[in-house]
Design a protein around this nucleic acid. Structure first.
Lengths: 224, 224
DNA sequence: GAGCGAACGGACTAGATAGTTAATTAGGCT
DNA sequence: AGCCTAATTAACTATCTAGTCCGTTCGCTC
């Protein structure tokens, strides 16, 4: 964190205690970190700018100085969260695996990411409540289809050629099924637990659900 | 509009036009209807009591008269929405169908309900953002496991006995997969469309997704 | 037709909340 | 050293918002 500006002097900072020196990047990043947690926690309407400011090492005025207003701050939070998962997806390399193992790997990677980034999943839910109106206002976010989709299309092609996969499945539909499963486990955890008394994120059930996702997707894709 | 001027003659309802007579049940129901739409639209934090009151044919004072405060009004909305779907589930009768058709019927019923009740799905999302804290405060809602679960368990048993279904599947997991698919389609419609440019609720895709859900679940359950 | 309680309406309040004003400081550049 | 601008601070404001006070009206019973 605290990316150094090229040519900047490394910060004269008294080794301990909060950093009080002037560091725009650090201040911005600090605000973004706190805002991410706060928006994911309370939703867009529920989050309070004063609250975010209080949890920051700077003041409310700085939020407006760097981000303009509450909405632009929220959009900045969304942009960082989305580009995060897209970066991970881009690193996926499954060309050397056979189609079945490749699907399994892709499903597991998605599963793991959703499990380890509940804030991201919550932000997506929140954004849907607002009918994606903030995403629509961000040019960064609108043209941001998942790199995983291209990878998926390649895997399906290879699987069809080798005769193990059905030929009539759309990559986006497969992506949707995987997402639906992973998103549901995190996004609906609380109501599901309240009504059915099962915590889908219980560590003891992790392996069960991870395997189940792979089975589900592969059963659907496999020729019988 | 047409607020009663003090001292004016009440005009006991000229046959047409809104009902102005005293009717507690009607008033309560009116408030609940408006509140459901408003909470589903804006979320709990985003909804405004004043706004709800304005869209009602009565006043804000009446909301507090009948429901006490904003939270209890919201809980009343949740209770009505949940008991709605549970009632439909209870009417499900699939004992006369073979296991495969029974699963198909159950999946389609769930699919149809989610499609025709987007407000319910949104309320569930909203409640998850608040970590189901309002459900937890309602004794009506906490002890409300889905009747569909018992039906599902029966179908799975019958399918296992006749050898068409695997024996190691948990009814709650099957319920979860069906819910995940149906909930995702409605709950994540906006972000999915914003990023992948596909409206999962496009009527032209309805049959495709409905069939896909059945295939998906049955492929997972069927012995190979 | 008087009395009574449930149902109702409108104006009011205290506190919260997004956003601002304006003055101040630190640090790089010449 | 001294200027100049980006970065920072704290106090302030207009508006919004959940919740309340209190007086009024309807419809029923006796």
């Amino acid at each position: 964190m605290a990316a150094q500006v090229p040519g900047a002097i490394p910060a004269r900072r008294p080794a301990d205690g909060p950093d009080r020196s002037r560091d725009p990047d650090r201040t911005r990043a600090d605000i973004l970190d706190v805002a991410t947690t706060e928006f994911a926690d309370k939703g867009y309407a529920g989050a309070r700018v004063d609250e975010i400011a209080a949890k920051t090492s700077t003041t409310k005025r700085m939020i407006y100085y760097y981000f303009g207003n509450k909405e632009q701050l929220y959009i900045a939070v969304l942009e960082r969260a989305y580009t995060g998962i897209r970066t991970i997806e881009r690193e996926l390399d499954v060309e050397h695996l056979d189609p079945v193992d490749a699907i399994r790997r892709l499903a597991e990677l998605t599963f793991d990411h959703h499990e380890s980034h509940p804030d991201f999943v919550r932000l997506v839910s929140i954004e849907n409540i607002d009918r994606a109106e903030h995403i629509a206002r961000s040019s960064v976010l609108t043209g941001l289809a998942s790199p995983a989709l291209d990878v998926l299309a390649r895997i399906l092609d290879r699987g069809r050629e080798s005769g193990v996969f059905r030929g009539d499945v759309d990559p986006l539909d497969v992506h949707m099924v995987i997402s639906a499963f992973c998103v549901f486990r995190t996004a609906n955890r609380h109501t599901f637990n309240a009504i059915f008394k099962r915590d889908m994120l219980d560590p003891a059930l992790r392996a069960h659900y991870r395997g189940m996702l792979c089975d589900l997707v592969l059963a659907h894709l496999t020729v019988r």
